[in-house]
Amino acid sequence: MKKTYFISTAAIATLGVALLFWQPWQSPQSHALLVTSQAPTGGDFTLEGEHGKTSLHDYAGNIVLLYFGYTTCPDICPTNLSNLSSAMRQLTDGERAKVQVLMISVDPERDTIEKLNTYLPYFHPSFKGLVGTPEQTAEIAKRYGAVYQKAAIGEGALGYAVDHSAFTYLINQQGQLVAQLPHATTGDEFVSAIRSQLTLK
């Protein structure tokens, strides 16, 4: 009896220690792009846009707010995009002319550029979508520290959903990644972040 008790205590302790060192983001069985502990480097990229090949450097001189999402995203993307929209509408015309919101689809198998450009203007007419091959998307996401993976939902009524990190990446007028803003950042917070970049010279 005592022995069993000892063994189970030892087992629990071992489990506790194991949990302490268990780092799910290093687990290899996940299809997710692994979250790395290094700071994301960001950088230039080229994908398919409304008018063909579109690169980040096409927006040099603008503050870019980059988001990784998808058009059948039921809740998370609409929340972020409507907050970004609210920020756009709070900016002055002069400020707004220097800001571009871009969404890279993390569901390149279903999202086409047409779908993205039907979806995004609902939030704000200036928002642009970009789509690439799964490989291109994965490579860019990795550089920005964005992670995503397909997830089966319910009885498959939705086809699938895409679990994804929901940061908005703030890129300065020189094309450098300067901040990642978390999910549900409010319109006011986006405005402050944008203005803090616009006043930097």
Binding site: S30, V35, V147, I153, G154, A157, D163, S165, A166, H183
Partner: peptide, 20 residues
């Protein structure tokens, strides 16, 4: 809607996950 399900969101491994 064709299908109605009860769902929640969890925040795991840096991702927002929606689950029934």
């Amino acid at each position: 809607a064709k299908t109605v399900e009860l769902h929640t969101h969890t925040h795991e491994n840096g991702m927002m996950k929606m689950r029934q």
